[in-house]
Every structure is written in C-alpha cells, then in structure tokens.
C-alpha cells in the first residue's frame, strides 16, 4: 500500500458517498445516469468475486464490501425509491456497446484464461468506459449541478491517483500490470475535458456548462 493508492481509494469512496448523499438528501436522481451506476455495480461484482476465494487484507475486504453495497444502494435509489425523478430521456447511452466489446476484449487480452481472471479483466476494461453514459448525459443536458461535478471530479481523480500508484509500484517493487495501467490511462483521459471545465469553471463558482 502507498499514499497514492490510499488517497485514490479515499477519493473513490468520497465520490460514491457524495453521490449517495446527494440523491438521498435531495430525494432526486435528476441529472444522474442510472446506466453508469449499473455499469459500476457490474464492474465491482465481476471484479470482487475473488472475495470468496482470496484474502488480501482486512482493508481490501472491507472496501470491496463497501463498494459493492454502496453501488447497489445507489441503483436501488435511482431505479426504485426515486424512480419518478429518473431522467429517462437524457440517460440514453447504449451500454451494450460498452459491455459487449469489454467482454470480447477480456476474452482476447488477459493475463490468464480462467473464469475469475477473464471477469476481472472484463471489469477493468468496463470500468474505463463506465462513466461515458454520465458524461454523455451531462453533455446532452448541457449542464451539471455543482454537486454532480464534485462527484465526477472525485471519481476521475481516483484513477488518476492510481496511475501515480502504478508508477510508484513499478519504481519501488518492479510490479506492474499493463492491463490495469492501459485501461486506467484511458479512463483518466476520458475525464480530461471535464477536469478542465471543473477547474476553470466550477472552482470559480460558475455552473458547469458543457458545450451541448
């Protein structure tokens, strides 16, 4: 464990809590892409199946349960409890175009061809594009509430910090995982234009307006 990965996991946890809190407090999921949340739940479910087979640390096990529980709780709030506020018309990204290619790629490019490893690889590829429905929705509505942009900033920062963690681990332990690194770079690059808007606008108190 290193400071980059720790702050990355913390940013990830903060992002999830910001979102859950926003939906719960405002009793509304307006502006939130349920499809992205479904993809995240799929990512954690396929990645954390090893909860039953391998034990890394109490921290690792605890965080896996937290990510699984919060992602399903978020889906419950969006699709059940506050489904009246779910914005169907703007959450229209075809997620099968993300799931199927990720699965195909996981079957072709992986470290080992066994069930858990292919699912882990699938979850890595899927996570790199899971935010697209949300970014697509923000671009369609042309704007995002500031709390949603804080959520996106924390979520984007988590994988950016993981990149620093991978550099650090390669430098200190000689450990590297190219699949995670390439997917993590793609994932972070997808946030770049949002990061730019967030830093130049939201931090100056302006609303996040995306050129529609």
């Amino acid at each position: 464990m290193n400071i980059f990965r720790l702050t990355g996991d913390l940013a990830h946890l903060i992002a999830i809590i910001i979102l859950l809190h926003k939906i719960w407090k405002s009793r509304s999921c307006a502006g939130i892409s349920g499809k992205s949340q479904v993809l995240f739940a799929l990512v954690y479910t396929t990645r954390y199946l090893d909860l039953v087979t391998s034990y890394v640390s109490i921290y690792n096990t605890f965080m896996k349960f937290v990510f699984l529980a919060t992602s399903y709780a978020t889906i419950y709030l969006i699709y059940v409890k506050f489904k009246a506020t779910y914005d169907h018309n703007h959450d229209t990204f075809r997620i099968e175009f993300l799931i199927l290619p990720s699965l195909a790629l996981a079957l072709l490019i992986n470290h080992y061809f066994n069930f858990l490893e292919v699912l882990w690889t699938f979850s890595i590829y899927l996570e790199s594009v899971a935010i697209l429905p949300q970014l697509f929705m923000v671009s369609k509505t042309g704007e995002a509430e500031s709390i949603t942009s804080h959520y996106l900033f924390a979520l984007g920062s988590y994988r950016a910090l993981y990149i620093l963690n991978w550099i650090y681990r390669y430098a200190t332990e000689g450990h590297y995982d190219l699949i995670a690194i390439v997917a993590g770079v793609v994932q972070t690059v997808l946030y770049c234009d949002f990061f730019y808007l967030y830093i130049t606008k939201v931090l100056k108190g302006k609303k996040l307006q995306l050129p529609a």
């Binding site: 990645r47 390669y170 000689g174 450990h175 995982d177 190219l178």
Partner: peptide, 10 residues
C-alpha cells in the same frame, strides 16, 4: 518484474 499473480488492488 513479473506480471501480477493475484490482484491486490481494489
């Protein structure tokens, strides 16, 4: 350096 055996990251 070797490719990771089991995944110790979240």
């Amino acid at each position: 350096p070797q490719v990771v055996e089991d995944h110790d990251e979240l």
